[in-house]
Nucleic acid binder design. Structure first.
Lengths: 231, 231
DNA sequence: CAATAATATTACAGCCATATGACAGAAAGG
DNA sequence: CCTTTCTGTCATATGGCTGTAATATTATTG
């Protein structure tokens, strides 16, 4: 808890912004500011904050949509999000939670409440570090050590293959199109041939094949690829 | 998302119709038109739309009555309805919501507002159909994993057969002509022989037959095909 | 029951999606 | 600065999928 946490505040109302800024700085957080979704995304790209305070209403892309986007991207999905909303309607809240938002604060709110929620969410998020070791059918991947193994044997992968496998193991059983994979494994602003995905799938399979577990990467013709424990 | 949504517009004013048609087509929706309630019902019987835009005032049966009727029928009750009304009176709105209408747009309206409402309603309705695995009489289809099974056994289908079955399972108990199937399963700008549908029906049935559930795809002579749980 | 229409079934050739191997440039590491 | 590894693209191979037509079967009609 010694290290200072960075909080990105996304809001276009100066009044709110001032209040939040004052309260958070006083409590010992470091701030990053953005006035709309575009700015928010570039801030995040520059430097990953520890938590995002996100207004429901924004000038460009709506807060929920931004949240959905962030929660979909491999790089930003682990960042907790607290939404600020004027509406207390249950429907909206539900939509937010579906998207993966971590908590809600309804305007008007006290700084005390805000701080409390932020601390609660940060505490909850702490142990949820993404370096929990993954294991499926003997195939182990440890993000913290950046190692992959199969039943004790060492599996050696290049950086991209590692990220690809990591994505698959955290999203098993589901089919992803080449486009989605490019978006989520490579990052959203890259222009790369879709066929390139095939090649990396091939490289990943080739290495897995030496250990006899390449069948876990499955081709779904006309749709994309899937990582699965089942045959 | 990926698939084109069908919207049935029920209105007898050419001016409104033109405007709506232009706006919706531009946004990428597929249109179905009806000028009164009777037409609307037969359109729905032909092919189930994903959403209905319903004028309050119609030449024959009033819009509210039609809405009530649709919301009572098992086959059409899940279709979201947005009412178009000139009156802003709360009483009318209430009556509409009681009937089960999903949203209201008061004339005059901007196309932007209309589109926004449509998207909102569709998004709200989405989680029912999009990701939820479908299951009927032991036959399971999961769009997210792209897997089909029958009582645990794996059912393997080609891409077209998968889409065909997916369409059928989301539109059960209703007859679709070959033309309609080509339109909705293959896409709108395809020039393909109608007989080709027979062949894909055959392929689908053949695979289903190995699991003993091919009876669910039924031929309706002179009309088309139907997917049904009943025998 | 014959004649006709609609659907079922089969076979097949072209096409399209994916797999694979090779390569040059970029990045990383020594 | 050189070596090595990694990356993205292309060319080619392969195999499955697709649409069509030809033929068989079944239903409808008079």
């Amino acid at each position: 808890m010694s290290e200072e946490k960075y909080i990105l505040v996304v809001d276009d109302e100066p009044a709110i912004l001032d209040m939040v800024e004052f309260a958070l700085k006083r409590t010992g957080f470091r701030l990053m500011l953005a006035e709309d979704s575009m700015q928010a995304m570039s801030r995040i790209a520059e430097s990953k904050p520890d938590l995002i305070l996100l207004d429901w209403m924004l000038p460009d892309i709506s807060g929920v949509d931004l949240a959905r986007r962030l929660k979909r991207d491999e790089l930003s999905k682990s960042i907790p999000i607290i939404m600020l909303t004027a509406r207390a309607e249950e429907g909206d809240k539900l939509r937010g939670f579906e998207v993966g938002v971590d908590d809600y604060v309804t305007k008007p709110f006290s700084t005390r409440e805000l701080i409390a929620r932020i601390n609660a969410v940060l505490r909850r998020a702490e142990p949820q570090q993404d370096d929990a070791g993954l294991c499926m059918r003997g195939l182990e991947l440890d993000p913290s050590t950046h190692r992959v193994g199969f039943e004790g044997e060492k599996v050696s992968l290049g950086p991209t293959e590692f990220r690809l496998l990591h994505f698959f193991m955290t999203h098993p059983e589901r089919v992803y199109s080449r486009e989605q994979l490019l978006d989520r494994v490579w990052g959203q602003n890259v222009y790369i041939e879709e066929r390139t995905v095939d090649v990396h799938i091939r490289r990943l399979r080739k290495e897995l094949a030496t250990h006899g577990c390449d069948k876990m990467i499955q081709t779904v013709r006309g749709a994309g690829y899937r990582f699965s424990e089942q045959t």
